[in-house]
Nucleic acid binder design. Structure first.
Lengths: 346, 346
DNA sequence: TTGTAAGCGTTATCAC
DNA sequence: GTGATAACGCTTACAA
């Protein structure tokens, strides 16, 4: 009876290092060493401890370990959305690199909301993340203050702005859209439409808009208000925006889109309107999502190295965690991918 | 001098509950109560503690709290990929529900690899997750054993199989594809092509295949090997598969695809081959991604309530965490969405 | 309502 | 190479 009872008692609680120690006939110190500095344990003893741990199904208790060692082996990433493949690729690559080092990743999805992003960062800091990656630098000041207070290494991704107070891993959104616009100007376009994501509280979109305007200004051109459509991105928004833009004279010969999905929407709507792209209208995207190369006509866009951003960010943070001073990561340069949705105006 | 030195000392370490207690002139117990059971603290004292905590920038240390209270406020989700909007929607919804309850989410991306999924689950358990959601039930037995050993509440999502030993939140992939196939049979199709994701180690895809075969068998039909293409999903794989299938006589009049991206690939390739859909060929997808409604012709598919799966899974797990016994969640039924990519064979 | 003090499970610092 | 033992920061009986 007592036996059964005590069996149940044992089964009821998770094994501790002490249980393993007793089973292996050693001290808890040796159990700890077996897992953390195996070289400092005699091979025979090590075997015994490993066997005992395995048979008990023991895993070190993370909270106890964190308290004693001051390491949590947790990092965090806050991104604006998982709705497209862009940030998903960054997160996937980051996770792969971190996993190599035994670091698990918290994921926070802000849904483009600064307050949610702040809440995620606070929750992550409270749970002891050792490093943090956030997309963009347009965040509440409290977000960066909280990170600074905790002295947690962090990076800002997808932005790269000279003079940013933050360590950045990404590209210049301004330069990228400047280049795209110059290409269209070079083809001879003079009247432009722009379909873009909400600019407010989004430094990347703001920079894209600035890049377009700067390039146009160089040729003494500008965007007419009736040719600029700003809204939460979707294929559907791309469609309706194209229709609106083309119905407001003077009719643009080129439409620049803030991302590929907006551009795909524009392409689909152009076809529905019986417009031939690129003969009657040029359209550009940004990101080079999988669909961009497949759609008809294939979309002229810029390819961003999303996975590379994730890898670089993780590597940077790991170096910081190891106490090193990472060499600053230079700006990435998205590749211009000229496909078939752009041509000189007819 | 001493002052500066001690200031630095103070600045160097993160504040503890004791620092807050001293600043507020109370004990650490009162600090703890202020944050965990505020009703049990006198309002004036509470104010003082809150002010002290705020001015010191104190947050409870997660490891200390976890050790003492046996709660981590962490849950985990393991999904096969973030490359499409499907699992992203589940994760997003799950996270939103958990965040309401102050629970932060670990995300593990297995990349359709059982060993990686197992490694993620182990890492999460070691870090003290209180609940776990995994996609599908085709996992290494060790995965479920590890969860069982830790007595951690869990759910399997996207699968719903009678007789499953696991709590499931999802739909019957078999029934869904049975229905899709019956629809095509009802239109008069007799020769079918199938483009599908890798079946091995993926219970959902296996069930989809079974659903198709079962429906065909009911009419004395079957799939010819030359009309079945199995591979990692992508638009490109959809394209090349369609071409291969149509070049192997007898020529199918309908092609069933394992998901929308495969179907979109098939649609694009059909157009490139000069085939008119649906007059000369019917194509079906699955998932109803945003693109499905936009492409030309709009895709006949089935809509899965992805966010709903995430919400239900989180709600189920929260009930378990609260010690409750959740009523079993009935199978979801994906909606059949008939658009314009299906018609009777000509 | 508040304080005292005993854990929680691990790691790290010493001796040996 | 190994074992005591004291942290680590918090929560929670139990007392007051």
């Amino acid at each position: 009876m007592t036996l059964i009872h005590s069996n149940n008692e044992i089964a009821r609680r998770a094994p501790r290092a002490l249980d393993v120690a007793v089973a292996a006939g050693v001290s808890t110190a040796t159990v700890s060493r077996t897992f953390n500095v195996p070289d400092k344990v005699a091979p025979t003893v090590r075997e015994r401890v490993l066997a005992a741990a395995a048979s008990l199904g023991w895993m070190p208790h993370a909270a106890g370990r964190a308290l004693a060692s001051n390491r949590t082996y947790i990092a965090g990433a806050v991104i604006p959305t998982l709705d497209d493949e862009i940030f998903a690729a960054q997160v996937g690559a980051m996770q792969a690199v971190f996993a190599e080092e035994g670091i698990t990743l918290f994921l926070g999805n802000s849904n483009y909301d600064q307050d949610r992003a702040l809440a995620h960062v606070r929750a992550m800091l409270a749970r002891g993340v050792e490093a943090l990656a956030v997309v963009g630098e347009a965040h509440r000041p409290e977000l960066f203050e909280a990170i600074a207070t905790r002295r947690v290494p962090y990076v800002v991704t997808y932005s790269y702005r000279l003079g940013s107070p933050h360590p950045c891993i990404g590209f210049s959104n301004r330069d990228a859209f400047h280049r795209l616009t110059r290409h269209l100007l070079g083809l001879g376009h003079r009247v432009f439409g722009l379909i873009i994501q909400p600019v407010s509280a989004n430094d990347r979109v703001e920079a894209r808009l600035a890049g377009v305007q700067e390039a146009l200004a160089e040729d003494g051109l500008g965007l007419r208000p009736q040719h600029v459509r700003e809204g939460r991105w979707s294929i559907a928004f791309g469609r309706e925006s194209l229709r609106a833009i083309l119905s407001a004279p003077p009719c643009p010969t080129a439409v620049i889109c803030g991302n590929d999905y907006l551009a795909i929407g524009a392409l689909l709507e152009a076809r529905a309107m019986g417009l031939e792209v690129p003969r009657e209208l040029s359209v550009t995207g940004f990101d080079d999502v999988a669909m961009a190369a497949q759609i008809d006509p294939p979309l002229t866009t810029m390819r961003v190295q999303n996975a590379e951003i994730g890898r670089l960010a993780a590597a940077y943070l790991l170096t910081r965690l190891a106490g090193g001073t990472p060499s600053p990561v230079p700006a990435l340069i998205p590749d211009f991918v000229e496909r078939c949705s752009t041509a000189p105006p007819s």
